[in-house]
Amino acid sequence: MKNVYVVRHCKAEGQASDAQLTSIGVEQAKGLAEFLLDKDIDCIISSPYERAYRTIKPLSDKLAVEIALDERLTERVLSDKNYPDWLEMLRKTYDDLDLCYEGGESSNMAMSRAISVVVEALGSESQNIVLVSHGNLISLLLKYFDDRIGFKEWESLSNPDVFQLTFSAEKKPNIHRIWAE
C-alpha cells in the first residue's frame, strides 16, 4: 500500500510563479510540517513555484528529504488573456474537460500531466509521497480518480489543504481530505 499526500500551497501574496508566502503562509507551512511529520514521508515532489516550494521546505528540512521540483505540478493556465468572467470560464472546464481557451490548456491536458507525476511516484520505491501543487491542478488530479469532484470542490479548497490518496490493489485510491482549518 502506498500513500500520496496531495498538498495545496499555503497562503501566498499572489499568483505569479515567484509569489512569496504571506507571513500567515509561513506559519501555516511550519504547522503543515508538524502535521505531516509522523506520516513516514520518504519522497517530496513540488511545483517549482516559490509558494509551493516554500510550503513544503519546513517538512523537507525536518525530515532531511530533498524536494524534487517538477514542472508538471505547476498551476493550470486557463488562458493567456485576462477575462473578467474567468470564474465562469473555469466552471465550464469542469463540465467540458476538453474545453480550451486561447493560450491555455484544457482540463484533460492539465489532468494528464498531473497524473503522470502520480504514476511515476507510484512506480518508485517510495511508500509515502508528498506532492505539492496548486488548487485547480489538484482538483483536476482528484477528479481523475473521482468524477464527482468538480468546480464546487475546487471552490471549497483551503490554503493549505491536504488530501491522502491511499493506493492498494484497486486501481482507484481511497481519497480522504485530512486537513481541517
Results as ranks from 00 to 15, higher is better:
Tyr94Gly: 02
Ala169Gln: 14
Gln127Leu: 12
Val162Arg: 00
Arg54Asp: 14
Lys143Ile: 06
Asp42Ser: 10
Asn3Gly: 01
Gly103Asp: 05
Lys81Phe: 09
Ser168Arg: 14
Lys39Gln: 10
Leu165Thr: 10
Ser47Pro: 02
Asn3Ile: 08
Ser139Thr: 13
Ser116Leu: 12
Ser17Cys: 14
Ile115Leu: 10
Leu32His: 00
His134Tyr: 06
Asp95His: 14
Ile24Ser: 13
Phe151Gln: 07
Ile67Asp: 01
Tyr53Cys: 05
Glu13His: 11
Thr22Trp: 06
Asp42Thr: 05
Arg113Trp: 07
Tyr101Gln: 02
Ala169Trp: 11
Leu73Lys: 04
Met109Ser: 08
Tyr101His: 02
Lys152Gln: 15
Leu69Tyr: 09
Glu50Tyr: 12
Ala180Asp: 11
Lys39Ser: 06
Lys39Pro: 01
Glu120Val: 13
Ser112His: 08
Asn82Leu: 09
Asp95Val: 14
Ile175Asp: 01
Arg76Glu: 04
Arg51Ala: 09
Ser124Gly: 05
Tyr49Gln: 05
Val117Thr: 08
Ala110Glu: 00
Asn159Phe: 08
Pro84Phe: 07
Thr93Gly: 09
Val117Lys: 04
Asp161Met: 11
His176Phe: 15
Trp179Arg: 04
Lys39Tyr: 03
Phe151Cys: 04
Asp146Trp: 10
Ser126Thr: 08
Asp147Met: 08
Ile138Cys: 04
Phe151Pro: 02
Trp154Leu: 13
Tyr94Arg: 05
Gly25Trp: 02
Leu99Tyr: 02
Glu120Phe: 09
Asp95Gln: 13
Ser46Leu: 03
Arg54Asn: 10
Lys57Ile: 08
Tyr94Glu: 03
Ile45Glu: 00
His176Trp: 12
Lys39Arg: 05
Pro173Asn: 14
Asn174Trp: 15
Ser124Phe: 01
Asn136His: 09
Arg76Lys: 08
Lys62Trp: 12
Val132His: 06
Leu69Pro: 04
Ile24Met: 11
Ser126Gly: 03
Met1Gly: 10
Leu99Trp: 04
Leu21Cys: 07
Val130Arg: 01
Ala12Cys: 08
Arg54Trp: 13
Ala180Ile: 11
Ser112Phe: 05
Asp96Phe: 06
Gln127Met: 11
